[in-house]
Amino acid sequence: MTDQNHHDDLGTFAAILNSRLAISARIVRAKSFALQCVGWLIAFVMMGTGLVIAFWGYSTTISPVPAADIAANAISDAFRRAQIRTIVSGTMTLSPDAELTLAKDQRVKLMEGDLPLRNSSRSS
């Protein structure tokens, strides 16, 4: 009877130990599944955030106005604001009936005695 009880006790102990190990293994698998799900969630959130930021960045580069119009307006504004100052020297021959017109705030300096000038009645 002692021998039989000994085998029963050993078998019971092995069964209890086996069930506890099985429960521990299931707990570890559940934890690993949860951590894997969290990892996938983080990966999808990061990919989604990256896509949203990429689309937002791309949308800021697109304009309803064509790039050629923007460039043309920028160049015309630059020419409009530019101030050109120059000094011209030399000899210039004009026909006797030629008229010169100056733009607003434009000045011409002539050397004394170099050019006979006639004042037109239409000049202001």
Results as ranks from 00 to 15, higher is better:
Pro64Leu: 02
Ala103Lys: 07
Val65Ala: 11
Ala30Glu: 13
Arg20Met: 15
Ala82Gln: 06
Val28Lys: 15
Ala67Leu: 10
Gln83Pro: 00
Ile53Phe: 05
Ile70Phe: 02
Met46Lys: 14
Ser19Cys: 04
Ser59Leu: 02
Thr101Arg: 14
Gly39Thr: 12
Pro64Met: 03
Ser19Val: 04
Ala71Lys: 06
Arg26Val: 12
Met47Cys: 06
Phe55Met: 08
Ala54His: 06
Gly48Ser: 10
Leu41Lys: 09
Arg80Cys: 00
Pro64Gln: 04
Asn18Phe: 12
Gly39Arg: 10
Arg29Glu: 15
Tyr58Ser: 11
Pro66Thr: 04
Met46Pro: 01
Thr49Asp: 13
Asp77Asn: 10
Arg80Tyr: 11
Gly48Asp: 07
Ala34Lys: 10
Gln83Asp: 07
Pro64Arg: 02
Ile70Glu: 05
Lys104Ser: 06
Gly57Ile: 04
Leu21Val: 13
Val52Thr: 12
Asp97Gln: 10
Tyr58Asp: 06
Gly57Ser: 14
Ser32Asn: 15
Leu17Met: 13
Val88Asp: 08
Arg26Thr: 15
Ile62Ala: 09
Ala67Thr: 11
Lys31Ile: 06
Pro64Glu: 07
Cys37Gln: 15
Pro66Ile: 06
Lys104Gly: 02
Gly57Pro: 01
Val38Arg: 15
Cys37Tyr: 10
Ile53Ala: 14
Thr86Leu: 04
Arg85Tyr: 10
Pro96His: 05
Ile27Trp: 03
Ala78Pro: 01
